[in-house]
């Protein structure tokens, strides 16, 4: 097994109308739907990226977490791999698309909805925003799988496939959501292992 030391440089969690960055609360709203929460966060952080409003909820969620982790990265041609996972794939948007084709009299499939019926589209959105021409993979697991994620992240770093890996969990289904994204590097930070990322995930 790969034994080289790797480190968590930064981490971001979004759930229950609240965003935490490196364990500190940076934004929250009162009780509201995710779309309204996402819009409020977008304004609060002055993101200025109108394409955000065309995204489905899973992409908005992943995009917001990635934004907070990557916005202070100043270099332009960064080799940051994307390694995301969730439970429900794109099922939330799949249901919206299915509703648009179920009724023969009211049949209106939209390409703008269909394109989001794949979980990896949210990685495409992050790649475009941050110009990450890099390795990317989306995995589906029953629950956050720190053992697999830490192993695979180390494989990417130790075989020089990326300088850093933006990884984690991004789950959205019927207005219940959770993002836990973190950046792993070979240089400095909190020691990266399965136990640590599970602990940070549970916070």
């Amino acid at each position: 097994m790969i034994k080289q030391a790797t480190y968590i440089k930064a981490y971001c969690s979004i759930q229950n109308n609240k965003i935490d960055l490196n364990g500190t609360s940076v934004f929250k709203t009162g009780e509201c739907l995710f779309v309204d929460f996402a819009k409020a966060a977008y304004r609060n952080f002055e993101l200025n990226y109108p394409k955000f409003f065309k995204m489905d909820n899973l992409s908005k969620l992943a995009f917001l977490a990635a934004e907070l982790l990557l916005k202070n990265e100043l270099e332009t041609d960064r080799d940051i791999a994307l390694l995301l996972s969730n439970k429900s794939s794109s099922l939330d948007t799949d249901i919206k698309f299915q509703e648009s084709i179920n009724n023969q009299e009211n049949y209106f499939p939209s390409p703008a909805v269909f394109v989001y019926t794949l979980p990896n589209i949210c990685m495409g959105e992050i790649s475009i925003r941050h110009n990450l021409k890099s390795e990317n993979t989306f995995f589906i697991f029953e629950e956050f799988n720190p053992g697999f994620m830490s192993n695979y992240t180390n494989v990417l770093l130790c075989t020089n496939r990326a300088e850093e890996v933006l990884c984690g969990w991004v789950e959205y289904y019927k207005d219940t959501y959770r993002a836990f994204l973190y950046i792993v590097t070979t240089t400095f930070g909190i020691p990266h292992d399965a136990t640590t990322i599970q602990t940070l995930f549970n916070k």
Binding site: M1, F141, E142
Partner: peptide
């Protein structure tokens, strides 16, 4: 636990690449 790869139309060949990496690194 099954490892599920859902990466649009590259999934099938990407799964081969992932399997290779997991074996290379002795996972």
């Amino acid at each position: 636990v099954p490892i599920i790869v859902s990466n649009a139309c590259v999934s099938g060949i990407l799964a081969v690449g992932i399997a290779k990496r997991l074996i290379q690194s002795e996972c």
